[in-house]
Design a protein around this nucleic acid. Sequence first.
DNA 1: CCCGTACTGAGCCTGAGTCTCGATTGGGCT
DNA 2: AGCCCAATCGAGACTCAGGCTCAGTACGGG
Lengths: 161, 161
Amino acid sequence: MSAVTADAIARLLARRGYRLTGPRRHLLEVMEGMGDHFAADDVLSAAPEVGRATVFRTLRLLQELGVVCQVVLDQGALAYRLAPEEHHHHLLCVECGAVQDFSSDALEAVFEDVQARTGYAVEAHRLEVYGRCPDCLARDGVPRDGPAPDGVARVGGSRAG
Amino acid sequence: MSAVTADAIARLLARRGYRLTGPRRHLLEVMEGMGDHFAADDVLSAAPEVGRATVFRTLRLLQELGVVCQVVLDQGALAYRLAPEEHHHHLLCVECGAVQDFSSDALEAVFEDVQARTGYAVEAHRLEVYGRCPDCLARDGVPRDGPAPDGVARVGGSRAG
DNA sequence: CCCGTACTGAGCCTGAGTCTCGATTGGGCT
DNA sequence: AGCCCAATCGAGACTCAGGCTCAGTACGGG
């Protein structure tokens, strides 16, 4: 699951004057042992010997380094995920909660268009796609209109995105 | 700013068996009087005569109806915004915090691609784009490497999205 | 071996949002 | 015009995520 070895992370930290300490190493192991995404709370309870503040601090640090990334769940809650090296987006199954990555070159065109039309200098973005994974589709016998996440744009349609 | 009139909202509510009550009407006015986006807390303090629970309940209800939508700020915090009728995405200025909407047809192609490659049935999505608005760019004299939001993909690059 | 800096954990604090429950009200029906 | 009940309201306690402080610990270079 880990896209970055402990060694690489140690170097990443060192380059910025940080240290790869015991607690940090332990937290990384815990995160690798968790599923495709996890809440801060999951880490907290999976590593009770590490202090609360340390967990949050480490999570934030790893985020800065790009080792973990945030995932916006369908209801707007935040979760984390070990990040692959490359730039990517998230594809979430609204039924079983699975998360997987994907990337897309077509997105660049969208940003260029936006930039041209609005005059904004685009610097970053966040794209989360919600749907049903093949497994859930198979299990359910392909439903045509399941409950869609709230506050999130439906594909065909309406508002908000 | 409001894309939907009070009357239309009343009909929207009625159609689902809800009522357009005094507090709801008041909250809508307050929201229209606020900027391009607002936190739940802003509404709370701008409408002290309305109860806490009612504010949150109303916000949730309006979200269901599509009258307001969620905006994911660069750090992952949630804000709200009166939503235009059509499907849209958000463009946020990381400097002044301005939010504006945009839409893009090119995105559909991205979803089709994802669907074909992963087998997911895409149902919804969420796209937030972060950058600097023309005003801030002009004021700053076009800086080349400002602070970028955390935990969010940079355009050129690295990870997380 | 010493020292400074990075780091840690305990505990307290805040902010966001939820839940409960008795009181209130809107509005269709008569 | 008045009734009646479901929808709604507001106060306040509660939960949960996450941040902050601060005194103590642990590296790593000199």
